[in-house]
Amino acid sequence: MTMLPPPSKVKLGLVIDLDTCVGCHACATSCKAWNSGGISGPLTDEDPYGKHPRGVWFNRVHGYELEADAATRQPAQTLHFPRSCLHCETPACVTVCPTGASYKRAEDGIVLVDADKCIGCKLCSWACPYGAREFSETEGVMKKCTLCVDRIYNEKLDAGDRQPACVQACPTRARHFGDLGDPRSDVSKLVAERGGVALMPELGYAPVNRYLPPRPRRVGEHTHQQPARTDANAGSLTQRWLNRLLKR
């Protein structure tokens, strides 16, 4: 299982719009809520009400400050950055796995952990550069984003609900789900249009997920630099308004 299947035609993944993400964490908790009872559940929580609350999450939202960039004339910015599994095409998290618990689905490229086989050696989490795998102390097995494989094909859900929990919840609709292997899919078009990027492609993991970089900030570029009307003094303005025939 640990061998990667031949590249699938269908490459399901997420496209996350960093221009729109407000950092609300809805994707993170909705993910936890669905997946706790899902095929990779439970997402255990250790010391839930104590001093060191911690648990398994498939998706976490970071906040950064971007310094101003003179070259592109971009101001300093605050950026929110959700981080989850990128369902890489050539992920070492799968190939390092000694048990075959980690695998990449041949059909759609989703990378999963089979909790019944996992021995909890944690190697896969070391192999993932993106920190997308989290170990459950309580269950002794590795957990990760399932791309909501038990939602997206789930015939017991309304067709409109057959999307990842995080995508459905995202209140700014900054998250998109689809087939990145199909250049005509909505997500592929979005990536093309917005210059979507893969994270650290130089590592060779070939992530499927894409991030849409923030659109260039526009500070006043639409205005004419000239004041619309040159300084009028109060007197001449009043005169103008006095002569204006206003109809009610």
Binding site: A28, H62, E65, L66, L79, R83, A198, L199, M200, P213
Partner: peptide, 16 residues
């Protein structure tokens, strides 16, 4: 690079 914006300098504002 890690956040896909290789040309920007980023510092941490908040952890998840």
């Amino acid at each position: 690079q890690a956040i896909g914006l290789p040309h920007r300098r980023a510092t941490v504002f908040e952890h998840p």
